[in-house]
Amino acid sequence: MKNFFMIFQEFLYDIAHNFLKPFSGLFKKNSVVEKILIGLEKVGKGAVYNCQMCGECILHSTGMVCSMNCPKTLRNGPCGGVRLNGNCEVKPEMKCVWVRAFENATQMPKYGSEMMWIQAPVDRTMKDSSAWVNIYQEVDPKKMSNWQTEEDNLRLQEMWRVE
């Protein structure tokens, strides 16, 4: 069941991507279109993923769990404080974001292995802007900070194991 649900989300992600692509010419920074998209993302991703509007969406690389919900806002995996029951060090009543992310990612045949990617530090100026605009505009913080990890990422992805 979970398996199906995760594959379905991967499918939706691809559809959204392909659907938006032809319109990407309209995706300009500070445009009306961006304003609309911000609204859509806030409401849509907010409701489903508790999106924190970091503006640099990596949802599909983190098991469709918004890692900005981790109280330490970690982007590359769990801290060492995860409790034995899988709950968060900081919020004992909440399941660790990364425990959830890992569980989900193992059910995601297409994007699951992207959990192994080394994610760049968050560019805080992107906060509350539209991640969709940023993606198509190629406002890529990785490029700005020479964060070249593509080679590492490919090697790391091969180490992804689902047992």
Partner: peptide, 21 residues
């Protein structure tokens, strides 16, 4: 590294990320 905290099966892979970093 903390091998003793969940998610156990991902801990070694997370170590791989640290080595690559």
């Amino acid at each position: 590294a903390n091998p003793f905290a969940p998610p156990y099966d991902w801990r070694p892979q997370r170590l791989a990320k640290k080595v690559a970093a």
